[in-house]
Computed example of a mutant assay.
Amino acid sequence: MAIRSNSYSERSVTMKLYFSQNSPYARRPRLVLHEAGLQDEVEEEDLTPRAENDAVLFANGPGGKVPALITNTGAFIVESLLICRYLDDLSGNKLTPPQPEERDKAIQLEGTASVLMDTLYFRTHEGRRDESHQVSTVKEKDAKIAMATYDALNEAAADFGDTINLGIITTISALGYADWRHPSDNWRDGRPLLADWYERISNRPAMKLTAPIY
Rank of each mutant, 00 (worst) to 15 (best):
R4C: 06
S5W: 04
E10P: 02
S12I: 09
L17M: 05
L17E: 01
Q21P: 13
S23E: 05
S23W: 00
Y25M: 03
R28F: 15
L33G: 02
L38N: 02
Q39P: 00
Q39M: 10
E41N: 09
V42Q: 04
N53W: 04
D54K: 12
L57N: 06
A59R: 12
P62Q: 06
G64M: 06
K65I: 11
K65D: 00
V66D: 02
A68F: 00
L69G: 01
L69I: 02
L69P: 01
S80Q: 06
L82V: 14
R85N: 14
Y86L: 14
L90C: 03
Q99E: 15
E101D: 12
R103V: 03
L109R: 15
L109I: 08
E110L: 12
G111C: 02
L116F: 08
T119R: 12
T124E: 09
G127D: 11
S132K: 15
K139Q: 15
A143G: 08
D151W: 00
A152H: 07
N154S: 11
A156T: 05
A156M: 09
A157L: 06
A157R: 02
F160D: 00
G161N: 03
T170F: 00
I172V: 15
I172K: 03
A174C: 05
G176M: 11
R181Y: 11
P183L: 15
S184F: 11
W187L: 08
R188E: 15
L194M: 10
D196S: 15
W197G: 01
R200K: 15
S202I: 10
A206S: 15
A206P: 06
M207V: 12
Y214R: 14
